[in-house]
Amino acid sequence: MSLVNAARAESTKLFSTSIWWILAIVLAVYVAFTSSALGFVLSASATGALGGRGPQPDAAGLPAMLYSTATAVGYVFPLLIGTLLVTAEFRHKTLTPTFLATPRRARVLWGKVAVGVVIGVIYAVIGIAASVGPAAGFLVGYGLDTGFGASDTWALIGRMVIAFVLWVLVGIGVGALVRNQVGAIVGVLVFTQFIEPIGRVAGTFVQGLSDVTRFLPGAAGDALVGSSIFSGATGATTSGTLEWWAGGLVLLGYAVVLLVLGSLVSWRRDIN
């Protein structure tokens, strides 16, 4: 079976199930709600409509911060679909007939990577629409610039698409390395929702720790995009983050390392 046929088979397996569109709906709702809430609070605060006496957010930087909500809080969804793309096959034993039809297991994994790129782009479009739409609406409503006339905004949106694709590939690597679906999903959620956020917050208070935490996957993803509500909330400075291209290379590095380890350690083992 050629790589094209392997990718076609993986595509059929993914899109014939409901998990991809269920996660897509949750992604859209979650990101849209977060973007709406932040868009209202930050836009109103920037214009003084809330009447607060605290520091007001920089109106010029609001579009990028709000639009990047799709990746800042929604990156876990492409990560999960990438993980499920592999672990679901181990759980339901569908890899057995796949490997019988395609004895070259590396080709099967490459087929999943190809499908991962496609689903990553699809999730990126959904996530970006869910974050940009509500945020832009609040910016317009409060008379603030939406940033659509600036090339930096469109560059940020383009990098968000790349980030979504890389997160799916990271998920495929996790799934290839950790066969147990429950263990892989729990591990992903614990790391992304607890361990890394706590580490990154601690990095803003502990001297020298940020030199390490900026290389974590989520921090690298935020650096690739170029903006994040997380960085704004923790007060992280530009000097404490990677350049966008370096963040992309770090995130790509995680994907490559996990895929290689998964292929060498787990992918070649017999299916129980």
Rank of each mutant, 00 (worst) to 15 (best):
D222H: 09
D270A: 10
F205E: 15
V250G: 00
A32K: 01
E89L: 07
L84K: 07
V188P: 05
W110N: 08
T12C: 15
G171Y: 00
I128G: 00
S266G: 05
P103T: 04
R268A: 03
S11A: 14
I198W: 06
T12V: 13
T83N: 07
L27A: 11
L66V: 05
I119V: 15
G39M: 02
P78M: 05
F99A: 06
G48Y: 05
L209M: 07
L95T: 12
I198Y: 08
L216W: 08
L252E: 00
R91L: 12
I19C: 11
G48L: 08
L216F: 11
G173F: 01
A163R: 06
V178A: 03
L251Y: 01
E10T: 10
G253V: 00
V188D: 01
S43A: 11
R200M: 15
E89F: 07
G141I: 10
Q207W: 12
N272C: 13
F77Y: 09
S263R: 11
A44N: 11
T153C: 05
T237A: 13
A124D: 04
L62F: 05
V132N: 03
L261E: 01
T94A: 07
T12W: 13
G147A: 05
V168Q: 00
F194A: 15
S266A: 10
G74N: 04
V113K: 00
P78I: 02
A37C: 15
L249V: 08
S16D: 12
V140S: 13
L261D: 00
L3V: 11
T47H: 08
T204F: 05
I25F: 09
A49E: 12
L166Q: 00
M65V: 15
